[in-house]
Design a protein around this nucleic acid. Structure first.
Length: 417
DNA sequence: TGGGGTCAAGCACGG
DNA sequence: CCGTGCTTGACCCCA
Protein backbone atom coordinates (compact mmCIF):
# COMPACT_ATOMS: atom_id res chain seq x y z
CA UNK A 1 0.00 0.00 0.00
CA UNK A 2 1.32 3.38 -1.03
CA UNK A 3 -0.11 6.61 0.36
CA UNK A 4 0.45 9.94 -1.35
CA UNK A 5 -0.63 13.52 -1.81
CA UNK A 6 -1.39 15.89 -4.65
CA UNK A 7 0.74 18.51 -6.37
CA UNK A 8 1.90 20.88 -3.62
CA UNK A 9 3.65 20.67 -0.27
CA UNK A 10 3.11 22.37 3.04
CA UNK A 11 6.16 23.54 4.95
CA UNK A 12 8.82 22.28 2.55
CA UNK A 13 11.27 24.92 1.39
CA UNK A 14 11.72 25.76 -2.29
CA UNK A 15 8.92 23.59 -3.61
CA UNK A 16 6.50 26.25 -4.88
CA UNK A 17 5.39 26.73 -8.47
CA UNK A 18 5.31 29.96 -10.42
CA UNK A 19 2.85 30.79 -13.13
CA UNK A 20 2.38 33.48 -15.69
CA UNK A 21 -0.50 35.20 -17.42
CA UNK A 22 -0.98 34.92 -21.17
CA UNK A 23 -0.63 38.66 -21.68
CA UNK A 24 2.74 38.79 -19.89
CA UNK A 25 4.18 35.65 -21.38
CA UNK A 26 7.25 35.59 -23.56
CA UNK A 27 9.90 33.02 -24.27
CA UNK A 28 12.38 34.31 -21.71
CA UNK A 29 9.81 34.41 -18.94
CA UNK A 30 8.43 30.98 -19.77
CA UNK A 31 11.92 29.46 -19.82
CA UNK A 32 12.68 30.99 -16.43
CA UNK A 33 9.48 29.66 -14.92
CA UNK A 34 9.92 26.18 -16.37
CA UNK A 35 13.42 25.98 -14.96
CA UNK A 36 12.23 27.24 -11.59
CA UNK A 37 9.31 24.80 -11.47
CA UNK A 38 11.49 21.85 -12.43
CA UNK A 39 13.77 22.69 -9.51
CA UNK A 40 10.75 22.76 -7.25
CA UNK A 41 9.59 19.39 -8.56
CA UNK A 42 13.06 18.01 -7.99
CA UNK A 43 12.94 19.26 -4.39
CA UNK A 44 9.52 17.73 -3.88
CA UNK A 45 10.76 14.36 -5.13
CA UNK A 46 13.74 14.60 -2.75
CA UNK A 47 11.40 15.41 0.09
CA UNK A 48 9.14 12.47 -0.82
CA UNK A 49 12.10 10.10 -0.86
CA UNK A 50 13.35 11.35 2.51
CA UNK A 51 9.91 10.89 3.97
CA UNK A 52 9.19 7.53 2.41
CA UNK A 53 6.29 8.88 0.37
CA UNK A 54 5.89 6.67 -2.68
CA UNK A 55 2.82 8.10 -4.33
CA UNK A 56 2.60 11.60 -5.72
CA UNK A 57 0.49 13.59 -8.15
CA UNK A 58 2.49 15.98 -10.30
CA UNK A 59 0.89 19.39 -10.67
CA UNK A 60 -0.57 20.29 -14.05
CA UNK A 61 1.00 23.71 -13.49
CA UNK A 62 4.52 22.29 -13.82
CA UNK A 63 4.90 23.88 -17.24
CA UNK A 64 3.34 27.38 -17.44
CA UNK A 65 0.60 27.50 -20.09
CA UNK A 66 1.69 23.97 -20.83
CA UNK A 67 -1.22 22.93 -23.03
CA UNK A 68 -1.63 26.31 -24.68
CA UNK A 69 -0.23 27.30 -28.07
CA UNK A 70 1.10 30.43 -26.34
CA UNK A 71 3.86 28.22 -25.02
CA UNK A 72 5.57 26.63 -28.02
CA UNK A 73 8.83 25.92 -26.25
CA UNK A 74 9.97 22.30 -26.71
CA UNK A 75 10.61 22.16 -22.96
CA UNK A 76 11.02 18.37 -22.99
CA UNK A 77 14.09 18.92 -25.19
CA UNK A 78 15.40 22.13 -23.66
CA UNK A 79 15.26 20.66 -20.15
CA UNK A 80 15.72 17.00 -21.02
CA UNK A 81 18.65 16.48 -18.65
CA UNK A 82 16.85 18.03 -15.65
CA UNK A 83 13.70 16.06 -16.43
CA UNK A 84 15.39 12.72 -16.92
CA UNK A 85 17.37 13.15 -13.72
CA UNK A 86 14.12 13.70 -11.84
CA UNK A 87 12.69 10.67 -13.61
CA UNK A 88 15.58 8.47 -12.54
CA UNK A 89 15.10 9.47 -8.92
CA UNK A 90 11.42 8.62 -9.12
CA UNK A 91 12.10 5.19 -10.60
CA UNK A 92 14.91 4.36 -8.21
CA UNK A 93 12.68 5.22 -5.28
CA UNK A 94 9.88 3.04 -6.68
CA UNK A 95 7.66 6.08 -6.44
CA UNK A 96 4.47 6.12 -8.47
CA UNK A 97 3.56 9.47 -9.99
CA UNK A 98 0.34 10.44 -11.70
CA UNK A 99 -1.37 13.48 -13.12
CA UNK A 100 -4.91 14.81 -12.94
CA UNK A 101 -6.20 17.44 -15.38
CA UNK A 102 -8.83 19.63 -13.75
CA UNK A 103 -12.52 20.07 -14.33
CA UNK A 104 -11.90 22.14 -17.46
CA UNK A 105 -10.47 19.33 -19.51
CA UNK A 106 -13.62 17.93 -21.07
CA UNK A 107 -13.27 15.13 -23.55
CA UNK A 108 -16.98 14.54 -24.12
CA UNK A 109 -18.04 18.08 -25.01
CA UNK A 110 -20.33 18.56 -28.04
CA UNK A 111 -18.10 21.50 -28.89
CA UNK A 112 -15.36 20.33 -31.22
CA UNK A 113 -12.90 23.02 -30.11
CA UNK A 114 -13.32 22.02 -26.49
CA UNK A 115 -12.59 18.41 -27.39
CA UNK A 116 -9.55 19.45 -29.39
CA UNK A 117 -8.21 21.41 -26.44
CA UNK A 118 -8.90 18.48 -24.14
CA UNK A 119 -6.86 16.24 -26.41
CA UNK A 120 -4.06 18.81 -26.46
CA UNK A 121 -4.18 18.97 -22.70
CA UNK A 122 -3.97 15.18 -22.41
CA UNK A 123 -1.01 15.23 -24.82
CA UNK A 124 0.65 17.78 -22.56
CA UNK A 125 0.12 15.65 -19.45
CA UNK A 126 1.30 12.55 -21.23
CA UNK A 127 4.41 14.33 -22.43
CA UNK A 128 5.41 15.13 -18.87
CA UNK A 129 5.10 11.51 -17.77
CA UNK A 130 6.81 10.29 -20.93
CA UNK A 131 9.74 12.66 -20.68
CA UNK A 132 10.20 11.54 -17.07
CA UNK A 133 10.49 8.03 -18.44
CA UNK A 134 7.43 6.72 -16.62
CA UNK A 135 5.69 3.55 -17.75
CA UNK A 136 1.94 3.12 -18.15
CA UNK A 137 1.48 2.51 -14.43
CA UNK A 138 1.83 6.29 -14.15
CA UNK A 139 -1.73 7.28 -14.79
CA UNK A 140 -3.60 10.32 -16.01
CA UNK A 141 -6.87 10.57 -14.12
CA UNK A 142 -9.75 12.27 -15.86
CA UNK A 143 -13.35 13.07 -15.05
CA UNK A 144 -15.93 12.13 -17.63
CA UNK A 145 -17.22 15.63 -18.28
CA UNK A 146 -20.57 17.28 -18.90
CA UNK A 147 -24.07 15.83 -19.33
CA UNK A 148 -25.58 18.25 -21.89
CA UNK A 149 -29.16 17.26 -21.04
CA UNK A 150 -28.60 13.77 -22.40
CA UNK A 151 -26.37 11.58 -20.33
CA UNK A 152 -26.60 8.55 -22.57
CA UNK A 153 -25.46 10.58 -25.54
CA UNK A 154 -22.76 12.29 -23.46
CA UNK A 155 -21.39 8.91 -22.40
CA UNK A 156 -21.38 7.74 -26.02
CA UNK A 157 -19.53 10.91 -26.91
CA UNK A 158 -16.90 10.17 -24.29
CA UNK A 159 -16.46 6.67 -25.65
CA UNK A 160 -16.12 7.80 -29.26
CA UNK A 161 -13.81 10.73 -28.44
CA UNK A 162 -11.61 8.38 -26.44
CA UNK A 163 -10.82 6.70 -29.75
CA UNK A 164 -9.26 9.95 -30.98
CA UNK A 165 -6.48 9.66 -28.41
CA UNK A 166 -3.03 8.32 -29.16
CA UNK A 167 -2.49 4.72 -28.11
CA UNK A 168 -0.06 5.56 -25.29
CA UNK A 169 -2.57 8.00 -23.83
CA UNK A 170 -5.35 5.43 -24.01
CA UNK A 171 -3.07 3.17 -22.01
CA UNK A 172 -2.53 5.81 -19.36
CA UNK A 173 -6.04 7.12 -19.04
CA UNK A 174 -8.11 6.38 -15.94
CA UNK A 175 -11.57 7.73 -15.18
CA UNK A 176 -12.97 8.81 -11.86
CA UNK A 177 -16.43 9.37 -10.43
CA UNK A 178 -17.28 13.01 -9.69
CA UNK A 179 -19.61 14.76 -7.24
CA UNK A 180 -21.91 16.38 -9.76
CA UNK A 181 -22.63 14.37 -12.90
CA UNK A 182 -21.21 10.86 -13.07
CA UNK A 183 -21.45 8.48 -10.15
CA UNK A 184 -19.25 5.46 -9.62
CA UNK A 185 -21.68 3.09 -11.33
CA UNK A 186 -21.58 5.16 -14.49
CA UNK A 187 -17.81 5.50 -14.32
CA UNK A 188 -17.55 1.72 -14.01
CA UNK A 189 -19.83 1.21 -16.97
CA UNK A 190 -17.62 3.43 -19.15
CA UNK A 191 -14.43 1.92 -17.76
CA UNK A 192 -15.61 -1.60 -18.61
CA UNK A 193 -16.68 -0.57 -22.09
CA UNK A 194 -13.37 1.09 -22.89
CA UNK A 195 -11.37 -1.43 -20.90
CA UNK A 196 -9.69 1.29 -18.85
CA UNK A 197 -9.26 1.45 -15.06
CA UNK A 198 -11.58 3.34 -12.73
CA UNK A 199 -10.51 5.32 -9.68
CA UNK A 200 -12.99 5.28 -6.82
CA UNK A 201 -13.28 8.59 -4.96
CA UNK A 202 -14.96 8.06 -1.59
CA UNK A 203 -16.05 11.66 -0.98
CA UNK A 204 -17.48 12.11 -4.47
CA UNK A 205 -19.40 8.91 -3.91
CA UNK A 206 -20.71 10.25 -0.63
CA UNK A 207 -21.96 13.42 -2.32
CA UNK A 208 -23.23 11.69 -5.46
CA UNK A 209 -23.93 8.08 -4.55
CA UNK A 210 -24.83 5.44 -7.10
CA UNK A 211 -26.52 3.03 -4.72
CA UNK A 212 -26.64 3.88 -1.03
CA UNK A 213 -27.07 0.24 -0.09
CA UNK A 214 -23.50 -0.43 -1.23
CA UNK A 215 -20.52 0.60 0.89
CA UNK A 216 -17.10 1.91 -0.11
CA UNK A 217 -15.57 -1.55 0.04
CA UNK A 218 -18.08 -2.84 -2.48
CA UNK A 219 -17.19 -0.15 -5.01
CA UNK A 220 -13.49 -0.57 -4.40
CA UNK A 221 -13.85 -4.28 -5.17
CA UNK A 222 -15.80 -3.45 -8.32
CA UNK A 223 -13.14 -0.99 -9.46
CA UNK A 224 -10.37 -3.44 -8.70
CA UNK A 225 -11.49 -5.57 -11.63
CA UNK A 226 -10.84 -2.71 -14.03
CA UNK A 227 -7.15 -2.64 -13.06
CA UNK A 228 -5.03 -5.00 -15.08
CA UNK A 229 -1.51 -6.06 -14.32
CA UNK A 230 0.09 -3.54 -16.71
CA UNK A 231 -1.84 -0.71 -15.04
CA UNK A 232 -0.14 -1.29 -11.72
CA UNK A 233 -1.87 -1.62 -8.35
CA UNK A 234 -5.40 -0.25 -8.04
CA UNK A 235 -5.55 3.43 -7.11
CA UNK A 236 -8.24 5.21 -5.17
CA UNK A 237 -8.79 8.79 -4.02
CA UNK A 238 -9.52 9.31 -0.37
CA UNK A 239 -10.71 12.48 1.29
CA UNK A 240 -12.84 13.62 4.21
CA UNK A 241 -15.57 16.22 4.32
CA UNK A 242 -14.73 19.65 5.76
CA UNK A 243 -17.62 19.93 8.20
CA UNK A 244 -17.77 23.70 8.09
CA UNK A 245 -17.93 23.93 4.32
CA UNK A 246 -20.10 22.98 1.36
CA UNK A 247 -20.64 19.31 0.73
CA UNK A 248 -17.66 17.83 -1.10
CA UNK A 249 -15.13 20.31 0.28
CA UNK A 250 -11.88 18.67 1.34
CA UNK A 251 -10.94 18.81 5.02
CA UNK A 252 -7.85 20.55 6.34
CA UNK A 253 -6.34 17.33 7.54
CA UNK A 254 -7.10 13.60 7.43
CA UNK A 255 -8.56 12.56 10.77
CA UNK A 256 -6.49 9.56 11.63
CA UNK A 257 -9.10 7.50 13.43
CA UNK A 258 -11.54 7.72 10.52
CA UNK A 259 -8.73 6.90 8.10
CA UNK A 260 -7.59 3.85 10.05
CA UNK A 261 -11.16 2.62 10.13
CA UNK A 262 -11.32 2.97 6.34
CA UNK A 263 -7.95 1.41 5.67
CA UNK A 264 -8.68 -1.54 7.90
CA UNK A 265 -11.47 -2.62 5.60
CA UNK A 266 -9.64 -2.55 2.28
CA UNK A 267 -7.09 -4.63 0.46
CA UNK A 268 -3.42 -4.06 1.20
CA UNK A 269 -2.44 -3.85 -2.46
CA UNK A 270 -4.10 -0.47 -3.09
CA UNK A 271 -2.53 2.93 -3.62
CA UNK A 272 -4.33 5.75 -1.84
CA UNK A 273 -4.12 9.32 -3.08
CA UNK A 274 -5.14 11.72 -0.32
CA UNK A 275 -6.95 14.88 -1.32
CA UNK A 276 -6.57 17.18 1.63
CA UNK A 277 -5.48 20.73 2.38
CA UNK A 278 -2.46 19.87 4.48
CA UNK A 279 -1.09 17.67 1.68
CA UNK A 280 2.18 15.95 2.66
CA UNK A 281 1.44 16.43 6.35
CA UNK A 282 -1.50 14.05 6.16
CA UNK A 283 0.48 11.70 3.93
CA UNK A 284 3.23 11.42 6.54
CA UNK A 285 0.61 11.04 9.25
CA UNK A 286 -1.13 8.18 7.47
CA UNK A 287 2.12 6.46 6.48
CA UNK A 288 3.40 6.58 10.06
CA UNK A 289 0.05 5.29 11.29
CA UNK A 290 -0.08 2.17 9.13
CA UNK A 291 3.61 1.43 9.61
CA UNK A 292 4.24 -1.78 11.50
CA UNK A 293 7.93 -1.31 12.08
CA UNK A 294 8.25 2.38 12.90
CA UNK A 295 10.28 3.51 15.82
CA UNK A 296 9.32 6.36 18.11
CA UNK A 297 12.00 8.39 16.35
CA UNK A 298 9.51 9.03 13.53
CA UNK A 299 7.12 10.60 16.03
CA UNK A 300 9.89 12.66 17.58
CA UNK A 301 10.68 14.09 14.16
CA UNK A 302 7.02 14.89 13.67
CA UNK A 303 6.84 16.44 17.12
CA UNK A 304 9.74 18.75 16.36
CA UNK A 305 7.74 20.11 13.43
CA UNK A 306 4.36 20.40 15.14
CA UNK A 307 5.33 21.49 18.61
CA UNK A 308 5.13 25.26 18.23
CA UNK A 309 1.75 24.97 16.53
CA UNK A 310 0.55 22.86 19.43
CA UNK A 311 1.91 25.37 21.90
CA UNK A 312 0.03 28.08 20.04
CA UNK A 313 -3.26 26.25 20.49
CA UNK A 314 -3.04 24.37 23.76
CA UNK A 315 -0.37 24.15 26.41
CA UNK A 316 -2.24 21.25 27.95
CA UNK A 317 -1.86 19.17 24.76
CA UNK A 318 1.75 20.24 24.50
CA UNK A 319 2.43 18.68 27.88
CA UNK A 320 0.35 15.58 27.18
CA UNK A 321 2.21 14.83 23.97
CA UNK A 322 5.59 15.28 25.63
CA UNK A 323 4.40 12.82 28.24
CA UNK A 324 3.40 10.07 25.77
CA UNK A 325 6.70 10.40 23.90
CA UNK A 326 8.75 9.71 27.02
CA UNK A 327 8.67 5.94 26.80
CA UNK A 328 11.13 5.21 23.99
CA UNK A 329 10.04 1.60 23.59
CA UNK A 330 6.51 2.39 22.57
CA UNK A 331 4.99 3.71 19.40
CA UNK A 332 1.78 5.52 20.39
CA UNK A 333 1.18 6.78 16.88
CA UNK A 334 -2.60 7.05 16.85
CA UNK A 335 -2.78 8.67 20.26
CA UNK A 336 -0.06 11.09 19.16
CA UNK A 337 -1.88 12.26 16.04
CA UNK A 338 -5.23 12.38 17.79
CA UNK A 339 -3.74 14.77 20.34
CA UNK A 340 -2.27 16.86 17.50
CA UNK A 341 -5.65 17.00 15.76
CA UNK A 342 -7.44 17.84 18.98
CA UNK A 343 -5.01 20.62 19.82
CA UNK A 344 -5.18 22.21 16.36
CA UNK A 345 -8.97 22.23 16.64
CA UNK A 346 -8.82 24.29 19.81
CA UNK A 347 -9.20 27.97 19.04
CA UNK A 348 -6.02 29.76 20.01
CA UNK A 349 -6.26 32.60 22.52
CA UNK A 350 -4.21 35.76 22.56
CA UNK A 351 -2.38 34.35 25.56
CA UNK A 352 -1.51 31.02 23.92
CA UNK A 353 -0.49 32.72 20.69
CA UNK A 354 1.80 35.10 22.54
CA UNK A 355 3.28 32.21 24.44
CA UNK A 356 4.27 30.47 21.19
CA UNK A 357 5.45 33.73 19.67
CA UNK A 358 7.75 34.35 22.62
CA UNK A 359 9.21 30.85 22.28
CA UNK A 360 10.00 31.60 18.63
CA UNK A 361 11.34 35.04 19.51
CA UNK A 362 13.78 33.26 21.80
CA UNK A 363 15.68 32.18 18.68
CA UNK A 364 16.30 35.78 17.69
CA UNK A 365 16.25 38.02 20.72
CA UNK A 366 20.02 38.02 21.18
CA UNK A 367 20.90 38.26 17.48
CA UNK A 368 18.19 40.59 16.18
CA UNK A 369 19.08 44.18 15.34
CA UNK A 370 17.74 47.06 17.44
CA UNK A 371 15.32 47.83 14.61
CA UNK A 372 13.99 44.29 14.59
CA UNK A 373 13.67 44.27 18.37
CA UNK A 374 11.62 47.44 18.44
CA UNK A 375 9.51 46.32 15.51
CA UNK A 376 8.81 43.04 17.28
CA UNK A 377 7.79 44.75 20.50
CA UNK A 378 5.54 47.10 18.58
CA UNK A 379 3.94 44.29 16.57
CA UNK A 380 3.40 42.18 19.66
CA UNK A 381 1.74 45.09 21.43
CA UNK A 382 -0.62 45.83 18.55
CA UNK A 383 -1.48 42.14 18.31
CA UNK A 384 -2.31 42.02 22.01
CA UNK A 385 -4.49 45.09 21.59
CA UNK A 386 -6.30 43.46 18.68
CA UNK A 387 -4.99 45.96 16.15
CA UNK A 388 -2.95 43.49 14.09
CA UNK A 389 -3.80 39.94 13.03
CA UNK A 390 -1.79 36.99 14.23
CA UNK A 391 -0.47 36.40 10.72
CA UNK A 392 1.46 39.64 10.53
CA UNK A 393 3.30 38.70 13.68
CA UNK A 394 4.04 35.21 12.37
CA UNK A 395 5.11 36.55 8.99
CA UNK A 396 7.56 38.86 10.66
CA UNK A 397 9.04 35.98 12.63
CA UNK A 398 9.13 33.91 9.46
CA UNK A 399 11.27 36.53 7.80
CA UNK A 400 13.65 36.58 10.72
CA UNK A 401 13.88 32.80 10.51
CA UNK A 402 14.90 33.16 6.87
CA UNK A 403 17.36 35.92 7.53
CA UNK A 404 19.04 34.17 10.42
CA UNK A 405 18.75 30.75 8.76
CA UNK A 406 16.99 29.07 11.63
CA UNK A 407 16.32 25.83 9.80
CA UNK A 408 14.79 24.14 12.79
CA UNK A 409 12.01 26.72 12.60
CA UNK A 410 11.87 26.90 8.82
CA UNK A 411 11.40 23.15 8.60
CA UNK A 412 8.72 23.17 11.25
CA UNK A 413 5.06 23.76 10.42
CA UNK A 414 4.79 26.84 12.62
CA UNK A 415 4.68 29.32 9.75
CA UNK A 416 2.37 27.23 7.62
CA UNK A 417 -0.50 26.01 9.81
C1' DT B 1 -24.76 35.67 -15.45
C1' DG B 2 -22.26 33.88 -11.82
C1' DG B 3 -20.87 29.80 -9.06
C1' DG B 4 -17.73 26.24 -8.67
C1' DG B 5 -12.04 25.11 -7.55
C1' DT B 6 -7.39 26.61 -7.02
C1' DC B 7 -3.26 28.95 -6.60
C1' DA B 8 -0.23 32.58 -7.60
C1' DA B 9 0.06 36.93 -10.21
C1' DG B 10 -1.20 41.48 -10.31
C1' DC B 11 -2.97 45.53 -8.60
C1' DA B 12 -4.57 49.14 -5.33
C1' DC B 13 -4.07 50.82 -1.32
C1' DG B 14 -2.08 52.26 3.28
C1' DG B 15 1.83 53.66 6.12
C1' DC C 1 9.59 52.36 -0.61
C1' DC C 2 7.40 48.55 1.90
C1' DG C 3 3.70 45.21 3.44
C1' DT C 4 -1.13 43.91 3.22
C1' DG C 5 -5.38 42.56 1.25
C1' DC C 6 -8.35 42.27 -2.54
C1' DT C 7 -9.15 40.96 -7.48
C1' DT C 8 -7.94 38.48 -11.59
C1' DG C 9 -6.59 34.71 -14.54
C1' DA C 10 -7.08 30.03 -16.83
C1' DC C 11 -10.21 26.64 -17.83
C1' DC C 12 -15.86 24.88 -19.15
C1' DC C 13 -20.27 23.28 -17.54
C1' DC C 14 -24.65 24.18 -15.52
C1' DA C 15 -28.57 26.26 -12.95
Amino acid sequence: MRIGYACLTVGVLETNFKSCMVKNSNEKKLLEIIEYNLKSLNNIIDYNIENNIKLFRISSDLIPLGSSSVNNIPWWEVFSSQISSIGSKIREADMRVSMHPGQYTVLNSPNEDVVLRAIQDLNYHNRILDSLGMDRKSKIILHIGGVYNNKEKAIKNFISNFQLLAQEIKERLVIENDHKSYNIGEALEIGRTLNIPVVFDNLHNEVLPCDISKDDQYWIRQCKETWEKEDGPQKIHYSQQDKGKRSGAHSNTIEIEQFMNFVGKIDDNIDIMLEVKDKNLSAVKCINSISKSKKIKALEVEWSKYKYNILEHSHLHYNKIREILKNKNEYPVIEFYKLIEEALNIEETIGSTVNAVLHIWGYFKSTATEDEKSKFIKLLKSYEEGKKPKDSLKKFLGKLAFKYEEYYLLNSYYFYL
